[in-house]
Design a protein around this nucleic acid. Sequence first.
RNA 1: UGCCCGAUGGUGUAAUGGUAGCACAAACGACUCUGACUCGUUUUGUCUAGGUUCGAGUCCUAGUCGGGCAGCCA
Length: 593
Amino acid sequence: MPVDPSPSAPAPSDFIRDIVAGHVAEKLYPKIVTRFPPEPNGYLHIGHAKSICLNFGLAREHNGQCNLRFDDTNPAKEEVEYVDSITADVRWLIAGWADHCLGFKPKGAHPARITSAGQPDFFLGPVPADAPNSEPFFASDYFEPLYEYAVELIRRGQAYVCDLTAKETDEYRGAPDRPGRESPWRNRTAAESLDLFNRMRAGEFPDGARTLRARIDMASPNVWLRDPLLYRIRHVPHHHAGDKWCLYPLYDYAHCLSDYLEGITHSVCTLEFEVHRPLYDWILGSLGLPRPLPHQYEFAKLNLGYTIVSKRKLLTLVNEKIVTGWDDPRMPTLAGLRRRGIPASALRAFVTGVGVTKFDSVTEVAVFENAVRNDLNASAQRRLAVLRPVKVVLTNIPAGELIECMATNNPQSDTPTTRPLALTREVFIEADDFAEAPPPKYFRLKPGGEVRLKYACIIKLDEIVKDTAGRLVELRCTADLTTRAGGPNVARKVKGTIHWVSATHCLDAEVRLYDRLFNVAEPDADGKFLDHVNPHSLEVVTARLEASLARATPHDRFQFERLGYFDLDPKDSIPGRPVFHRTITLKDTWTKV
RNA sequence: UGCCCGAUGGUGUAAUGGUAGCACAAACGACUCUGACUCGUUUUGUCUAGGUUCGAGUCCUAGUCGGGCAGCCA
């Protein structure tokens, strides 16, 4: 299905959108509220883009809202650096598309005590993300209400403090095909659990000494229902909550209640949480909460060919110095993709086109590359640049003469603009565009052959000059200036048209040529992804660029004609010393011999 | 081998009991001052076996294959 990347494009339907549309039709909720809940323990990657586009897409399609919430219940693994990078990545990805749906909260706000349906309740509503003094949501802002809910669970006999060690807890849990055993502490009184739970919070016990557990069913075929842990003791300060707590909730307990506190209607997550859904429902159902409960829906995460997205493995690439950092343009992180020049709109079109299902599939990189080229083809300014220069002397043009040629900036534009190019006696052409012994069907420069210099004129190769070692020094050609635009022979056809730059009116620049990081489609299929790293994923050349590129800014997207899409590296470029890099090559149907 | 989930061309998806369609990829052709773009043509598919039905990719049963689940991670 063709995907219109414009901000108003309708999204194709999928099973989750169908469910939500059904709820909207039934007027089940006054407003659709979703959330994107990353843990701040790493960088966002292309897989997260799918989740972000689904959750924000749902919100924008129904005039709803999507909260950015940090699922920060494990202080040992989390850092503010990640909070900041994730926030920036999300804003970048949805900018101009769903930023009006991004739900933030007033800075420092915690859930308020309210009354719902005559019952005491907690709630934390959103403010627009562009409101002054706003910030994302944090699960760690909910520790107080979460604690009160836990107390309620204990009072209701639905939770108890357990003194088993981690190892014992494991043994008691049993196995998927073998029922567990009940903890000896399972039946202690609510009063005793309450007292202990309070003292756990007060810091009376060391890490791991006791836990709070839900009292469900140790014989359940679903191991997540075998009295799962709700709280553990961790004497560690928290990056957002400070040193207020030494008692931290676990994911299953915190997540469903965080959803409830924010008034989430649809809690969309990936397939591995499917077996957790009964627990999600159990916790919310056990508390007699007064407002409508959120529900969890699961979809298959994105798998992309030639790519790995596991945070731990990505970190290995960084630590082993296989890449220069999390934002290396070869990384599948949002920071890396952004730095590489991939437009957010291309990423959105890609993940939208992939669809949403429960089938664990692997998407071919070609689909991603197509989305990028499709986007850039429409928007990128065309420029001429020569990556591997070969000197050409146009013997019938006097030295010092400058012939101005007009080049089109973007032929895809409805109203294309032009810019001048300097044609001079000496020019550079691409080494690939000359062959002394050409293969069959070679359209470019060959002995005695003709080729058009794009936007200029047709030239004929007269002489190949080599040094005594047999190395190519220069090509001497005759320019047919009557074939220039406006000339009498413009219409004369030759089979090949090549790019070029003036040798005297050009700019030298470092250009980084990136290729895929792995040379097999499923790098981790054998668990040895490091063995499949592509040793040629980066090639650095000193290229000759047309003079106008001196005015490039990191915001500009260029197509170097016949080569690919390039832009200024936003990190390593300095004024006067630009570094360009290749976002992606042009599709090449000419099979190299 | 306990429980949960899934299976439509090479890949990803659509079809909500009624003509198996789209995108990417591939092949061929047209066009071309980018071997790009665009356009045209073509190849390739409902996991298996039963059942329900006038009619099944869709519903039911069984099987096969694949994925997930036994962190005091999320």
